[in-house]
Design a protein around this nucleic acid. Structure first.
Length: 573
DNA sequence: GAGTTTGAAACT
DNA sequence: CAGTTTCAAACTC
């Protein structure tokens, strides 16, 4: 509610007293600044043309203005000049009001907190919706079913915040790229709103806010809803709202096929299937993201087997950046190579079998069966994993994952909705849990007596280390992308990478970049030898004197150590 | 302005 | 926690 509203500035006395009500006081103060409770609709304001000048007047009849139904009560203010009946939201009924406040807070401690953080003040008309700077997000999201989120029934619409992954709405049309929304806000300049949407998504993703905290069942439902012919929501994840993020937006858009104006006027308005491009779209092939998730499972299994008495395996560390060759592009990410060609237990088993160690294998078959196995493969399978195994491993037991990691439904070729992405986030978030479950089952079947705690610690160490190294790899890639394109001169290599989707034209070669990220890598990577192409084998010499994260997470030069490939050769015998 | 629609809040 | 009911604002006529 706008701060200029006199009534808003006067908190109910009871709000300022008791302990619990002191909390409420801050909430209502915030509410004053924020304003927009969903139902905080002021008829007078709307009818006045969008300029809030008077306290809203409720029309409650049955709630005594002591429920959140009442916008005055919800806003933490007394009813004044309202049209309500049997109103007890006033100083004369302070006791009843306090009791109601306490009961409300008991049910929902956030009941009096603003749902839209830092949203613009005042009511608005459609032109406002188009032009207003939308700042904030809806903490809970709407659940609209019939309004398409394009009416003031919708909390998000009313708060001028595009629907996001927090929402559980159906048939939403209040998202970036919606033709309906654009038609409603004809001739607008929605870039800022685009940015806000991205900010919402980013915040949700980064903080694990309500969007990702929602129960999985709800997410499932949301997913169903979104697939019922619902127009997919444009994610616009390339954009963010904070100042620094806006800067990033510029750079992101600069390397994007779409400029801001194009996105706004062309792609958004004319194409019902706005292409979503992840920030990592030009850095990390989506398949590799899936593989990365699978890596966690494999690493967990590896730890399990190591502690179950596989002495050679016990020396294996998480894949490290040495396979990345000092920042050089390779056709497959290091973790994928590591898994497919050396570290997967299936490979190990096969080689051990050749070494005529059947008896040992038999003793550990249960453990083996659980590893690198997603329930589809027979126990004790000795086949090296096919190239697509990692992907299927990620997909889940029904193999029904039809999405790419960059938010595009490959079946439909449509950008995925915020809800869908949020759901996918949930599903991916389950991976570590699954790893844990996996490891537990394995450990329970193992005869190793080291105990669960050791096993879990080892699993955690490997998984986290591996993941951290992946992040390092990404940092290198990301830093590479941000460098000026003028350093590029290896056009042949670059072109191939661009074709692979790994690097866009204009990006410089990774080896020319001093990659750093949180102090992880700071030394310049060696220049790629002339003629080197993506996917070529390692040039060990080029890696000399290059600090690389090793399996246990330390940064060291690899001059005195074997490369990952060499170590794995040793490991594989 | 009456009646209907809508979705959040409250309830079960 | 899901389904249902209550409620009041938004909307339609």
């Amino acid at each position: 509610m706008p701060p200029e509203l006199p009534a808003r500035q006067q908190l109910p006395p009871m709000v300022q007293r008791s302990h619990s009500l002191q909390k409420l006081s801050s909430r209502t103060q915030a509410s004053k600044q924020d304003s927009h409770r969903p139902r905080a609709r002021a008829n007078s304001e709307a009818k006045d043309g969008g300029t809030p000048k008077r306290q809203k007047q409720c029309n409650c009849k049955s709630s005594r203005c002591l429920k959140l139904y009442c916008e005055c009560f919800a806003a933490g203010i007394y009813c004044r000049n309202c049209n309500c009946g049997n109103c007890q939201n006033n100083a004369d009924n302070e006791a009843a009001r306090q009791e109601a406040v306490g009961a409300t807070l008991e049910c929902n401690p956030n009941a009096f907190r603003p749902k839209i953080a830092s949203s613009p003040h005042g009511f608005w008309d459609k032109r406002d919706a188009a032009k207003a700077q939308v700042v904030g997000k809806h903490s809970k999201g709407c659940q609209c079913r019939k309004s398409g989120c394009l009416k003031k029934y919708c909390e998000c619409f009313q708060a001028k915040v595009l629907c996001s992954g927090n929402c559980k709405c159906m048939d939403c049309k209040f998202f970036e790229g919606s033709k309906e929304r654009r038609a409603l806000f004809h001739g607008d300049h929605n870039v800022i709103v685009h940015i806000q949407q991205a900010a919402n998504e980013a915040i949700n993703g980064a903080t694990g806010s309500s969007g990702c905290e929602a129960p999985l069942a709800s997410k499932k439902r949301k997913m169903r809803d979104y697939f019922r012919g619902v127009a997919a929501k444009d994610q616009s994840l390339q954009m963010t709202a904070e100042p620094q993020q806006e800067n990033y937006l510029k750079s992101s858009l600069a390397s994007s096929p779409l400029s801001v104006s194009q996105m706004d006027s062309t792609a958004v308005s004319e194409s019902p299937r706005v292409k979503y491009r992840s920030l990592l779209a030009n850095i990390l092939p989506s398949q590799h993201v899936k593989d990365l998730c699978s890596l966690w499972v494999v690493l967990s299994d590896k730890a399990t087997m190591a502690l179950a008495g596989w002495p050679q395996l016990s020396k294996i560390s998480a894949p490290d950046l040495s396979l990345y060759k000092g920042g050089r592009e390779i056709s497959e990410p290091f973790w994928l190579n590591a898994i497919k060609y050396s570290q997967c237990p299936h490979v190990y088993i096969e080689k051990r079998g050749k070494m005529d160690r059947q008896s040992e294998r038999g003793n550990r078959e249960t453990s083996v069966a659980l590893s690198c196995n997603d329930g589809k493969r027979g126990h004790g399978s000795q086949n090296p994993i096919p190239d697509d195994w990692l992907s299927r491993n990620l997909m889940g037991r029904d193999g029904s994952n039809d999405f790419q990691s960059d938010g595009v439904d490959m079946d439909n070729g449509r950008p995925m909705s915020p809800g869908t992405l949020a759901l996918m986030c949930d599903e991916r978030d389950k991976m570590p849990n699954r790893v844990a479950d996996h490891g537990q089952n394995t450990s329970q079947s193992s005869s190793n007596g080291n105990g669960f705690s050791v096993l879990y610690a080892e699993q955690e160490r490997l998984v986290l280390t591996g993941f951290r190294n992946v992040l390092n790899w990404l940092i290198v890639r990301g830093s590479t992308k941000e460098m000026p394109s003028t350093v590029v001169n290896d056009t042949g290599n670059q072109q191939k990478q661009a074709e692979n989707g790994n690097m866009i034209p204009g990006s410089e070669r990774a080896s020319d970049v001093e990659a750093y990220g949180h102090g992880i890598l700071k030394s310049p990577a060696p220049r790629v030898p002339s003629g080197a192409t993506a996917g070529t084998s390692l040039d060990e010499d080029s890696l000399e004197n290059v600090p690389l994260p090793i399996g246990n997470g330390e940064i060291r030069s690899n001059t005195n150590g074997k490369s990952q490939v060499e170590r794995e050769k040793v490991f594989l015998g």
